[in-house]
Design a protein around this nucleic acid. Structure first.
Lengths: 147, 147
DNA sequence: ATAGAACCTATAGTTACTATAGGTTCAAGG
DNA sequence: CCTTGAACCTATAGTAACTATAGGTTCTAT
């Protein structure tokens, strides 16, 4: 027996996810419907492990399910080139950078609030943090500095 | 000065959110059930506007609904002190920092992949990015929970 | 042969909303 | 006073990406 077989539990463990997640990936079309035993249990082999690893890793990198589908399409279908994949990775890097920027602003706002709230023994209605949160600000979700 | 009244639409506009969001906040107990007109339309006034602003701003800062409830409790109930609020803000700043760290790692990984993929004209099965994604990674990077 | 772990399907729950359907009320214009 | 039509009402379903549950079946080891 050259080709090792895996139960769904073993597969999930190898990819560091849960059995239910594999079910889910099958349902949404990321993982194929594998062969079954007589009794109906799924039987996986090495390519499945690799594919699931690919999916998990892509998800960890912040690709959404639909994007992972795109990536898998590049792999599943012939005649695709590395450039397409590279472009998606670059785009994803930009998205991630934007998230980082958002969070940096957010953290600054929080830190500023904390700094202004020097003492902790004021009653709440005198708290600069609460005050800052109450302040009416521009209706737009623009991330202006919190003053 | 006076007691200006607002419809739910006006309220939502003032806080920069949607009417449905206000409905939702009422349902989950962040916003109180306001008085109504004869016909059943909600009537809001200035304190409602402030409260909704507080909620929106807290949400923007990354506090979850349940955390916002905590914060509001500090405000709604007497005998709370600024220190409790400050502690929550500091904790939130730490959470945000962790997210930033995660995303930084993620971006590095993506950038590294992109850098290695010098050319874009290789067939996909020769693409270093795809390769990197396929690679079996340490499965225990995730938080294993005790069984 | 049997216990129990692992598997099966189907459905509901999670978070924080958003969108829809199908109806009612309100304010303005004629 | 009557009619639009925008804004409102409630209730329900949908979103993303799983996770959890229920209730049943199969596999494996003793």
């Amino acid at each position: 027996m050259n080709y090792e077989k895996y139960s769904i539990g073993q597969l999930a463990k190898k990819a560091g996810c849960k059995v239910e997640t594999v079910h889910y990936y099958e349902k949404v079309g990321l993982m194929p419907e594998p062969p079954r035993t007589e009794g109906g249990h799924r039987i996986y082999s090495l390519p499945h492990v690799k594919r699931l690893n690919f999916i998990r890793r892509s998800r960890d990198l912040g690709f959404r399910i639909e994007q992972v589908k795109e990536l898998l399409k590049f792999i599943d279908e012939p005649n695709h080139y590395c450039g397409e994949v590279k472009a998606m990775a670059m785009q994803q890097a930009r998205v991630v950078q934007e998230k980082i920027d958002d969070l940096q602003r957010l953290k600054s706002a929080l830190n500023e609030m904390v700094t202004h709230c020097a003492s902790g023994n004021k009653p709440v209605d005198d708290c600069p943090i609460v005050d800052a949160l109450y302040t009416e600000h521009s209706t737009e979700k623009s991330t202006e500095k919190a003053t």
